[in-house]
Amino acid sequence: MKLKAALAAGVLALVAVTAVPSSAEGTFNAPVATRQADESGRQTAIFAGGCFWGIEGIFSHTRGVTSVVSGYHGGSEETARYRAVSAGGTGHAEVVRVTYDPAVVRYDQLLQILFSVGADPTQLNRQGPDRGTQYRNAIIPVTQEQRAVATAYVAQMRRSRVWDDPIATTIEPYVRFYPAEEYHQDFMLKNPDNPYIVRWDAPKVAALRTMFPRLWQSTFRRG
């Protein structure tokens, strides 16, 4: 698994630089993006990569990220509750909403981190010990530019042949993000000795620090 992650980071880092430019570097043959940025220039991204505890932890330690919020996406407001989502059948996925400064970390770099240390893109409706559509791995673009980059990135993962199994990552249309319950926010920070965190999520954060030292930040950002 460590070898696969290293290969993914290496191959897709090259692809990201050469074929998935940020908006400052080129247009990538995509429609002109409608930016969703606040007055400070920060932008928002939404990702699904299995249990949101670990994905939140990874991006909270990514330089250029200023906020990470765990939540739900894909179902209705009535079912956007942990008990309902974890039972399956709501259409929701556990997701994180990442606020980031594109002058520090690009969208394609966030994708690179997600699929190098956060989620296995070949697992369909599961990640690690978790099973169900609520644990699918998916990209939810919130701008046309993000959709163009995400589409190209998934295509590149398929062409890279880094993974033995087919890429299962989907690109889903943005509907509405629902923040998860308060006790899920900063779960790794609050519960470092939780057995699930120790077994499944702490190694992901450690891998981020090792594989992406230039994008590592020690401060845990509050969502």
Rank of each mutant, 00 (worst) to 15 (best):
V85N: 01
E77T: 14
H73L: 11
T66C: 14
S67K: 09
G75P: 01
E78N: 13
S67R: 06
G49D: 06
G91W: 02
G88P: 00
Q43N: 06
A93C: 15
F47M: 13
T79W: 09
V85C: 01
F47C: 12
S60Q: 13
A45I: 08
F52H: 04
T90Q: 12
G89Y: 01
G50E: 01
A93F: 10
T62H: 06
G57F: 02
S86E: 14
G64L: 06
I46Y: 03
F59H: 07
A80F: 03
H73Q: 12
H73E: 03
V69C: 10
A87R: 15
A48K: 08
A84E: 12
H73A: 13
G64Y: 03
G57E: 02
H61M: 13
S86Y: 10
I46N: 03
V85Y: 05
W53M: 09
E78Q: 14
T44P: 07
I58A: 05
G41P: 03
G41T: 03
T90A: 05
I58G: 04
V65W: 02
R42A: 13
T90S: 07
V68H: 04
A80E: 10
A45V: 10
Y82I: 10
H73C: 12
V69Q: 12
G50M: 08
I46L: 01
S60N: 04
T62K: 12
R81W: 13
A80C: 11
S67E: 12
F47Y: 14
V68C: 06
H92N: 15
Q43C: 04
H92M: 15
A84W: 10
A80T: 11
G50R: 00
G89K: 10
Q43H: 08
V68P: 00
A48T: 09
G89H: 09
Q43A: 05
G54H: 02
S76K: 13
T66V: 15
S70K: 09
T79Q: 15
V65Q: 02
I46C: 01
V69F: 05
T66M: 11
A93P: 11
H92V: 15
A84F: 12
Y72F: 04
F59P: 04
T62N: 11
G64V: 04
I55E: 08
R81T: 14
H61E: 10
I58Y: 01
G54D: 03
G89E: 10
G71S: 07
E56F: 06
C51A: 10
G54P: 00
T90E: 08
E77A: 15
A45W: 03
T66K: 05
G54V: 02
E77W: 10
G64I: 03
W53E: 00
C51V: 06
